[in-house]
Design a binder for these strands. Structure first.
Length: 451
DNA sequence: TCTGGGGTCCTAGGACCC
DNA sequence: TCTGGGGTCCTAGGACCC
């Protein structure tokens, strides 16, 4: 490549690229503390089963994220446990995104509580810019943020971990290796439990040690990820994923400067059940509800799905003792079945029908106690607008449900005005009575994370 | 201490076609 | 009647992230 030589255009680009990573401190817990004054200043954990987020006061008492709540309570008996509210959190997140968008060329919202921004040029001191962002977020939302600045996303994100809570850390050009070298390898994004374990067998524990490993050896051992490790250990950008991505114009502010990424690959909705069950009727009801929610999210993003997967999480024991005796093998903890959708669809009625068929086939083959139900819509593509679709396909095209589409359009409008619960899809109505129903839908097991 | 939900990306093996 | 190889798509599963 021409531009790979020293001093070439790519090198210049890299030197100039400046990415800011922003992470909202103790996000879900902070949202609760800001909206429920009684919890302010108290040790607070948000989550169901495990800690999704905890306040500073809980942290200093030894409560950590991802820790089972039982353990958290043991360490901190006065802990207040809150279910959280995903919809409310999303509104806070959106406001933070808007604020950052005033200061940056573009913003990419990556997860619930963090985002990347691309800073323009060298005109402004990045520390000064980050300070202004922090002050503005504090003023307008009450939230505290930590920020990292670096030449790549990886560097910016690692800088943020140094800045927590509430601080700002800039990895200046030229200081990358000094910054990375002492870190344990598992701090590099992409190095999880398994990879760290494998590296440890080679006595590789820090980034400095990782940097001594031959490039081809890494590639042979870890494949594509090995190549990425080589680059990340040097603070070099690895692929398009290390630059701030394009925005979703439709889903973000029209013509605006921030949004979610435009290339969403899949949309899934999953929930644990309040009680494990093998009752096909209640499983169908819950799956119908989840497909309806996922389909709505799909349409909001102007997408259709060419793939649908159903997942069942099994209660301990997996298949029944009877089945285990018949076919002695390690019992699976989950069952999964998927199908390609041709033509692709975003129609609730079509998607529900397919999902239920998959569920039925799983239940026919396995006798099991189910504790978790989920649906995933994948292979997403841009939707063709309804009007055009009518010209492109005949009314009787199999799998294309024009009546269903009209129903969805009406449904989406109705729900935009009166809330999701205004109408429920077919079998989902069976959940009435057994689950609390609010304006935005049923209260599922984990309200802090389920939309 | 034994557990949440929503994502991304990679790989392996099989089906199928030319 | 038996024999090749490559490309592509599909499915299932796993590692990893916050």
């Amino acid at each position: 490549m021409v531009d790979s030589k020293p001093g070439g255009p790519r090198r210049k680009l890299r030197a100039r690229a400046r990415i800011l990573h922003l992470d909202i401190d103790a996000f879900l817990a902070s949202v609760v503390q800001l909206t429920e004054p009684a919890t302010f200043g108290q040790p607070l954990a948000v989550g169901t089963g495990v800690v999704a987020s905890r306040s500073y006061e809980a942290k200093v008492r030894g409560v950590e994220t991802a820790m089972p709540l039982s353990e958290a309570r043991r360490r901190c008996p006065e802990l207040i446990v809150h279910e959280g509210d995903a919809a409310l959190a999303m509104r806070f997140r959106k406001r933070v995104g808007e604020i950052v968008g005033r200061f940056a060329a573009r913003v990419e919202l990556t997860s619930l509580d963090d985002m990347y921004a691309e800073l323009q040029g060298h005109a402004t001191d990045p520390i000064d810019l980050a300070s202004r962002i922090r002050a503005q977020v504090r003023t307008e939302t009450g939230l505290s943020v930590a920020q990292g600045i670096g030449a790549t996303k990886t560097l910016a994100r690692l800088a943020t971990t140094k800045a927590k809570p509430g601080g700002i850390h800039w990895v200046r050009p030229g200081a990358e290796r000094r910054f990375l070298d002492p870190m344990p390898v598992e701090m590099l994004p992409g190095v999880g439990h398994k990879t760290a374990e494998t590296l440890a067998t080679y006595r590789i524990r820090t980034v400095a040690e990782l940097r001594l490993v031959d490039r081809t050896l890494l590639a042979e051992t870890f494949g594509v990820r090995g190549e990425e490790l080589y680059l990340k250990a040097r603070g070099l950008p690895c692929g398009a994923g290390d630059f701030v991505r394009e925005l979703d114009v439709e889903h973000g502010r029209p013509g605006g400067s921030w949004g979610e990424t435009s290339d969403t690959r899949e949309i899934s909705r999953t929930t644990s059940l309040w009680e494990a069950t093998s009752d096909p009727e209640s499983l169908r009801a819950m799956l119908t509800y989840l497909v309806d929610r996922a389909a709505k999210a799909l349409r909001e993003r102007g997408r259709i799905a060419a793939r649908l997967d159903v997942v069942l999480g099994l209660a301990s024991g997996g298949p029944s003792a009877f089945e285990a005796r018949e076919r002695p093998r390690r019992s699976p903890t989950s069952l999964h079945r998927g199908i390609a959708l041709a033509p692709p669809s975003s129609t609730t009625r079509v998607l529900v029908e397919r999902a239920i068929a998959l569920l039925e086939s799983l239940l026919d083959e396995h006798r099991c106690l189910v504790r978790l139900v989920g649906v995933r819509l994948g292979r997403l593509r841009m939707a063709v607008h309804g009007q055009q679709e009518r010209f492109l396909f005949a009314e009787d095209e199999p799998g294309l449900d024009l009546r269903g589409q009209r129903i969805d359009t009406a449904l989406d409008h109705l729900r935009a005005r009166h809330g999701f619960a205004a109408v429920l899809a077919g079998e989902a109505n069976a959940l009435r009575g057994s689950l609390a129903l609010g304006r935005d839908g049923f209260r599922l097991r984990t309200p802090s994370l389920t939309l």
